[in-house]
């Protein structure tokens, strides 16, 4: 038997980039930018760019810390086994240090360049995702997604605060919309990948409470999302373009959620088409809702 001396490969920069979950980051950048553009006060483009960069880098840091902590779990799931850590392309300590550096750097830059209120909320969102959600809630409670959804709801709030330096009812409404959007978004995904979650022992709602309860909860949160999405219009923070768009989008969301909520799986061979449709539409929903908010604001500014 011959013994070979394996030369460990150096981690490629693309793997560091992958560690920041770029696809999630694109949604974070978009909602943060929309929160900033929907604010009544204008921010200098350089400072606006810096604020969005800090939000994106902070989200990237939190995602890196999430993958550092969950490397073993990721290895057990088909969807995540190709990530840099479970695939063995990166050292865990490097991933942790990279996450800490991005998180601390983004908060400091936000504080110095934009303001310390925005920086504190950014720090809170990173701790919320990396510690409260990843380390504390996700492995312990099937309600992990509900409370963890708060982490994804921070970007528009930070974008708004970066522009105005103030927290009002409007950014809180934007926060609440994403907070209530998150459970049906993730649970529809969890319904068709639940065997993966069960395998690694993550107590996702479909695994712990069963499919029927999950479908009922998806319907409940989608029903709550409809009036909630209209709050920016009702409090005068947005006009009729947003109001009508929100009503149409939320109704479509509710229709798809109802199909999922009242459905019973026909067996193991079920293709879970309604669940996949709801998951796909939920992403479009959030992009379209926030785009309508910005378009509405732009029309107001144009007079």
């Amino acid at each position: 038997m011959t013994q070979q001396t394996a030369v460990p490969l150096v981690t490629d920069w693309r793997d560091f980039f992958a560690l920041t979950k770029p696809r999630v980051m694109s949604l974070v950048i978009f909602t943060g930018l929309c929160g900033m553009l929907a604010a009544p006060e204008r921010i200098h483009p350089v400072l606006g760019f810096t604020a969005i960069l800090c939000i994106a880098v902070g989200a990237g840091g939190a995602a890196a810390l999430n993958q550092w902590w969950e490397a073993d779990l990721d290895a057990g799931m088909r969807r995540t086994s190709g990530r840099p850590l479970p695939a063995g392309r990166m050292d865990r300590i490097n991933a942790r240090d990279f996450g800490v550096a991005l998180s601390v750097g983004s908060v400091l830059l936000m504080g110095v360049a934009i303001g310390w209120l925005a920086a504190v909320i950014l720090a809170l969102s990173i701790v919320y995702y990396a510690v409260v959600y990843t380390i504390w809630l996700k492995p312990r409670t099937p309600q992990n997604i509900v409370i963890g959804g708060g982490a994804g709801a921070f970007p528009p709030l930070i974008g708004w605060v970066a522009a105005t330096g103030d927290i009002t009812l409007m950014p809180i409404a934007l926060f609440a919309i994403i907070f209530f959007w998150t459970p049906p978004h993730f649970w529809s995904l969890a319904l068709f990948v639940q065997s993966d979650y069960a395998k690694v022992g993550i107590p996702m709602l479909p695994v712990v409470a069963g499919e029927v309860a999950t479908r009922r909860q998806i319907l409940l949160y989608s029903a709550l999302l409809l009036p909630l999405s209209l709050v920016p219009w009702m409090i005068g923070g947005a006009g009729s373009v947003y109001g009508l768009s929100a009503a149409a989008l939320s109704l479509a969301f509710l229709v798809l959620a109802t199909r999922v909520g009242l459905r019973r799986r026909s067996g193991e061979a079920d293709s879970m088409k309604p669940e996949k449709q709801l998951f796909a539409f939920s992403v479009i929903y959030l992009f379209a809702l926030f785009a309508a908010l910005v378009a509405d604001r732009w029309l107001v500014v144009q007079g």
């Binding site: 030369v7 490969l9 981690t11 920069w13």
Partner: peptide, 17 residues
């Protein structure tokens, strides 16, 4: 060759940094 590959990765990492 792993050594050549590592040199290539290090170079591209340095450029990005």
């Amino acid at each position: 060759d792993p050594e050549t590959e590592n040199t290539r990765i290090r170079r591209s990492r340095n450029k990005v940094l």
